[in-house]
Structure formats: structure tokens, C-alpha cells
Write a protein that binds this DNA or RNA. Structure first.
Lengths: 226, 226
DNA sequence: CCTTCGTTTAACAATTTTGTTAAACATAAA
DNA sequence: TTTATGTTTAACAAAATTGTTAAACGAAGG
């Protein structure tokens, strides 16, 4: 049978992701996608039937990936504050890689709220429930102000995602170059933690920025147990 | 001369705003706009030359309005924390009225970063400079954790705007109805203040939700001076 | 070698969308 | 009433965009 040089279907998907999530062409044409992928436009219809179905596929993968990321961090066995640190790191780093992913999700789910419902069955455990116990403990100890798990999560999402979403606004408001903006986002990781917990973030995590992740974090975990 | 029944130009603009900012049809067609306004499509080109120029006009007005709103609050003579409270109130309330305004600005400025530069001349006083003195005072008194004015402003913007931008995401994540969502946003006003200042927001403001604004706030100002 | 079948292509058709234009219209002024 | 001018309309043209289809292609299997 005719075997494609590469897996055309995923080539198209990857190209579309690059266009939508990285370059920010949220209304990229089937022609643009095909050109960028170096394939015939008809192939998009061959594999996905229509532009909309391709977009649906991208949305589904993006949402699932994002949700799994949150859950795997929140479900881990680390101390609460470390989970949050990890999450901040993950979101900001991913935001730098795919600057328009969040905007894509927001725009698309705003246009078709039903799709979101299909993607997120309500029988699942809510992420707010996953932190409620830890959070209430923090509150009871008087470490942070009383706040519902629902609001706390949205605080976290807001502080992480908005600066990514509103890149141009932020840059312009503060007169920042692209590199200044990137540094700003790196600095923000600590600021977000500090804003949520009203306490300077443990620096150890950031020392070896590039190499270690899990290792240094695990160490921090032990240290914090005290 | 031929005088229109209403000012057609502003009718078109207002209709477009309703479509873009309220209904969230960020890619509304000239035909859709014309239909919604009940005018001939050609009039859009007569008054604005092209769809893009109409969009530019909307963007400019939206950005200016939003910026003026921030500045007039920050420039007022109230105590710092009251300004912030006022700002939170203003943004959330406006966000409920024009749910897609922020998304419009973000999407449009992401597509054409240059337009943003034109709209915001850099010789203007930065809004971060307008709060730096007050903020540093708070920090020095040990009332809040050390944070740059730049980050503090983005914290504020993030906490206010993201839940509006990501309505569907938030709603779905917490399984909220539309009314539950609206209540959530109202509650958030206090949460945002509390998150920024690590202290419960003075309740007086919210008691008489509908009638007073400036009056009750002024009172609070006096009370806080102590 | 030739058939088969999944893949790919080019060409076509239909629809949508934007932009233009000449003529119709309405009112104020002459 | 006529004229002049700004406004509105319908009709047209052009471009962009999506979706379909029949034919070409190319390797695997007989």
C-alpha cells in the first residue's frame, strides 16, 4: 500500500499546533497549514474531514494535556507548597514554549462552550478537591488567609496564565523588550509563590535552573518536612 | 444635506462593540455587523473604509478607555489600598458587562503588536510609577512582602482579568452555573484584595453594593487613617 | 508482472467575504 | 423649485476559503 514518507496525519497536527500555539495565527487557513506542512491541502480534509474537526482535535489534545499536567502534579506525594512551586514552574515554562496555547483554549471554548463540557466529564474529581485538605491545613495553622480551594486555584491560574496571555499588554505597559519580558516571567515564578503564601519562595529550586528538576525538588521536600 | 435618522457612524461602532465585546463574536463579518445594526453593509465601508480600520477604531477606543480608567483611579487622592479596591471593583464590574473585551484586546494586540505601540506612546508616565511610592511604603512598614511595582500591577491585572477571560474554563473546572459564576466573581473582589494585601478587605464597601460608591469609600478612607 | 488499496494530487465547484461604484435618496440652501 | 451635498442602497466584481472528486501514485501481496 502507499506508505507516506512521514506520518502525514501527525505532521499536519504538529504543524497546526505550531501555527496556532506558537505563532499565534488563531485563524490559520487550511491552505496556510498545508503550506507550512508542505503537503497538499486536500490531505487535511482526507485526514480530518474539515477544518473544524482538525481544530476540535487540537483543542481536545491541548485541554487533556493541560489537565493531566495539573493532575499529575497535584496527585503526587509531595508537600503542598512544593506541588504549587512545581505547577508554577511547569505552566510558566510551557507558556514560554507555546505562548498562544492558553489563548487558543480560551477563544475556542468561549466560542463553543459545549465542547468544553464534552471534554471534561463532571464525574471526575475536581482539582479543587485535590488541594482542599492541604489548603485548609495551611489556613488552620494561620499560614495563609482563609480562602476557598476554588478561589485559590483560580488565583494560581490567574497569576500564572494572565502574563502569558497578555504578553503584548504587559510588555507595552512596562516598556519591556522580548528578553526583558522573558526575565520578568522567570522572576514571576517566585513572585507568584510569594503572593499566594505571603512568604519568600525557597530559593533552592531556582539555583540549578537548567539541569535538575525532580532531584533538587525531592531534596527540598525532605528539608521541608522538619 | 442628507441627515441620517441616527448617527450611523456611532450606531455601527456601538453595534460592533456589542458583537465583539459582549457577544464574543471576535470574527464578526461586516455583514453580521451591518445586519445587527440594521444598516446596509456598504455603510461600514463608507464610514470606516475597511473592516480592519473599523476594528482598529474599536481597539483604540477600548484601550484608551481602559487605560484612562486605570489612571484616573490611580491618580486620585485616595489612600493606596482604597485605590486598589476601587480598581478591582471597576474591572470586575466592567468585565461582567463586556465579557470579551479583554480577550479582544489581547487577541488583537497579539496579532498586531505594532498597533499597541502606536496607541501607547512611551513618553507617558507608567502606571507602575504611579503606585511605586505607596507600594514601597507598604513594604517598608512590613505590611506586605517585598515586590516590585511592575509585578504588583501584573498581579492585580492577573487576578482581576483572568477569571473573566477564562470564563468557560473556570466555570467548567468548578462546575458552576452562570449565576454561580457571577457570584464567584463578586466574591473574588474581596479575595483579590486579600491575596494582594494578605488581609481581609474592609467590608464596608460591599455592604451597600448598589447605591454608594464614592461616599462609603471616603468614609473608609477616614477610618483607615488611624 | 499486475492487482490492490491506502495515499496524494490537481482541478473543480460552491460559498463566503470583502471592497467598489453608480445611482437613488433626502435635506438644506439658493 | 432647483441645486448641491452628504447619506444610503443595490448591484457588481474580485478574492479568499472551504470542501469534493476523479485520477495519479506507489508500495505490498498475489
Amino acid at each position: 500500500m502507499g506508505i507516506p514518507e512521514v506520518q502525514t496525519e501527525s505532521l499536519i497536527k504538529d504543524t497546526a499546533k505550531a501555527l496556532f500555539f506558537q505563532k499565534g495565527v488563531l485563524n490559520a487557513t487550511t491552505q496556510e497549514i498545508a503550506d507550512e506542512a508542505g503537503v497538499n491541502r486536500a490531505l487535511i480534509h482526507y485526514y480530518f474531514r474539515s477544518r473544524e474537526l482538525l481544530v476540535d482535535t487540537l483543542l481536545e489534545e491541548a485541554v487533556n494535556e493541560k489537565r493531566d499536567r495539573i493532575r499529575s502534579i497535584l496527585a503526587s506525594e509531595r508537600p503542598f507548597r512544593e506541588k504549587i512551586l512545581l505547577y508554577i514552574d511547569a505552566v510558566v515554562d510551557q507558556g514560554l514554549k507555546y505562548p498562544h496555547l492558553e489563548n487558543f483554549i480560551i477563544t475556542e471554548t468561549a466560542r463553543h462552550p459545549d465542547k468544553m463540557k464534552i471534554l471534561c466529564p463532571k464525574d471526575r474529581v475536581k482539582s479543587s478537591d485535590m488541594i482542599r485538605k492541604d489548603l485548609d491545613e495551611e489556613i488552620q495553622k494561620g499560614l495563609i488567609q482563609p480562602v476557598s480551594a476554588e478561589h485559590f486555584i483560580i488565583n494560581l491560574l490567574s497569576l500564572c496564565n494572565y502574563p502569558l496571555l497578555a504578553k503584548t499588554v504587559v510588555q507595552n505597559m512596562h516598556g519591556m523588550s522580548d528578553t526583558a519580558y522573558r526575565k520578568f516571567l522567570q522572576d514571576r515564578k517566585d513572585i507568584i509563590y510569594q503572593t499566594l503564601f505571603n512568604e519568600t519562595a525557597p530559593g533552592i529550586l531556582r539555583k540549578e535552573e537548567h539541569s535538575a528538576e525532580v532531584h533538587s525538588i525531592k531534596k527540598t521536600a525532605e528539608q521541608k518536612k522538619e
